Simulated assay, not measured.
Amino acid sequence: MASKPVLRNLLMSETKVNFVIALTSALVVSAAYKFGVEHRRKRKIDEFFKTYDAEAAFERMQKAGVFRLYNPAKEE
């Protein structure tokens, strides 16, 4: 003869188990994102700005006509 199922406090016990599973999976996914995506992006951005020359980029954009409302003759 099978024993009766435990129904008293069933919701609370299932909620605790599900909370632990959700917390663990959230921590694993966030750690994987941090080390897999965020660190790689930061490293690429740092490498880009090591050789980036803002003045040269500004001159290129100015010659290309990006700044339509900017007139360097009025600024000086």
Rank of each mutant, 00 (worst) to 15 (best):
D46Y: 06
L23P: 07
N9E: 13
K42V: 10
N71M: 01
V29A: 00
N18R: 12
E75N: 15
F58M: 02
L11C: 00
M1V: 05
G65I: 15
N71D: 15
E14R: 00
M12Q: 11
E38I: 09
K42N: 00
N18T: 05
L23Y: 02
E76S: 10
V29W: 00
A31H: 03
I45D: 10
F19D: 00
K34C: 06
E14W: 08
E38V: 04
M61E: 15
N18K: 04
T15Y: 13
V6C: 09
A32I: 09
E76K: 06
K16H: 08
M1E: 06
F67L: 10
R60T: 14
A57M: 06
E59C: 02
A2F: 05
R41F: 07
L10E: 10
A31N: 02
K63S: 12
A57N: 15
M1W: 02
D46T: 07
E76T: 10
L27M: 12
M1N: 04
V29F: 01
M1D: 09
L7M: 13
N18C: 00
I45S: 00
E76W: 06
E76F: 10
T51C: 08
A22E: 00
F67M: 06
T15F: 13
R40W: 02
E55L: 13
A56L: 12
K44M: 00
Y70S: 09
R68N: 15
V37P: 03
K63V: 01
L7D: 11
E55P: 02
V37Q: 09
V17M: 06
A22C: 12
F67K: 01
V37K: 01
A32V: 13
R68A: 15
P72I: 05
L11T: 10
V28T: 07
F35I: 02
A73Q: 13
Y33R: 14
S13W: 04
G65H: 09
A22Y: 09
L11E: 13
E14L: 09
N9F: 12
I21V: 13
M12T: 01
E76V: 09
M12C: 08
K16P: 02
K16Q: 14
I45Q: 03
R68G: 13
E59I: 12
E38Q: 12
A2L: 11
F35E: 01
E59S: 07
T15N: 03
T24H: 04
F35Y: 13
Y70L: 15
L10N: 06
K34T: 04
A2S: 11
V6P: 06
A32K: 09
A22V: 08
A57S: 13
P72D: 09
S3C: 14
T24F: 07
